[in-house]
């Protein structure tokens, strides 16, 4: 995972609450056994007018010009602002992979579904929580100005507007550190290998029915 660095990016507004992971990346694309290539099918049912399938040439599909992300001004967006309960529903990590593959690095919303939130950090993708009234303001400013940008400073935990207003957000310090350093969570856990083994030993004594595979007598 690459370390998360401060950056300034174009904002795209998606003014809907309860956006579920089925909408972020529809089921037919989950058949892929890879982690990449999901970007062209991000929000597939909303982005295109005709139904799509894995392997289709997406350049031949009919674009839904009413869908906001299809507007030229948001073409190079890498910050998404949206509403309450983003990423609800299915646990598919493909939702995060699709957002990132499309080019997003950050999403800003008043709240997220738990699994989506946790999946984001595993991929170096930052979900920022801000108050609804701040989000309202960001929506208004994004709509009002072509090429509206925000600066995301994870170290300072702040979202900074063009005029220099900084909105602070809270984030678990561990998650912040992991993102800033691009740490591999599995290798961190494996530093605790001895503790895992002694936990297993203890539990094999206390609750042996969870360890039918354990050799007895050692």
């Amino acid at each position: 995972m690459n370390p998360f660095k401060t950056f300034t990016g174009i904002v795209a507004p998606l003014d809907r609450s309860n956006i579920d992971t089925d909408s972020i990346i529809p089921k037919q694309y989950l058949k892929s056994i890879k982690r990449s290539g999901f970007g062209v099918n991000l929000f597939d049912d909303w982005r295109y007018l005709d139904p799509g399938n894995p392997g289709d040439d997406h350049t031949k599909r009919r674009i839904n010009t009413d869908f906001i992300l299809n507007q030229k001004r948001y073409k190079d967006a890498n910050i998404l602002i949206t509403r309450e309960n983003f990423g609800c529903g299915s646990s598919r990590e493909h939702a995060v992979w699709a957002l990132m593959d499309y080019g997003f690095r950050v999403v800003i919303a008043p709240g997220y579904a738990d699994i989506f939130y946790s999946n984001s950090f595993k991929n170096g993708f930052l979900p920022i929580v801000l108050d609804t009234n701040i989000i309202d303001r960001l929506f208004a400013e994004t709509f009002a100005k072509d090429g509206y940008t925000l600066t995301i400073d994870l170290e300072q935990r702040s979202v900074i507007t063009l005029d220099g207003t900084a909105f602070l957000f809270t984030i678990d310090l561990n998650l912040q550190k992991r993102l800033l350093q691009g740490l591999d969570e599995i290798s961190i856990t494996l530093h605790h290998a001895d503790e895992i083994k002694s936990y297993e030993k203890k539990r094999q004594m206390e609750t042996p029915w969870f360890f039918p595979d354990a050799k007895t007598g050692d």
């Binding site: 990590e93 699994i115 946790s118 999946n119 595993k122 969570e185 961190i188 856990t189 290998a193 895992i196």
Partner: peptide, 22 residues
């Protein structure tokens, strides 16, 4: 509880997960 694919890999590799208590 349900987990994402990175966590599936984490469980396969370590039989554990890093979790925040709900």
């Amino acid at each position: 509880f349900g987990i994402g694919t990175s966590e599936v890999e984490h469980v396969l590799a370590t039989q554990c997960l890093v979790l925040r208590k709900a």
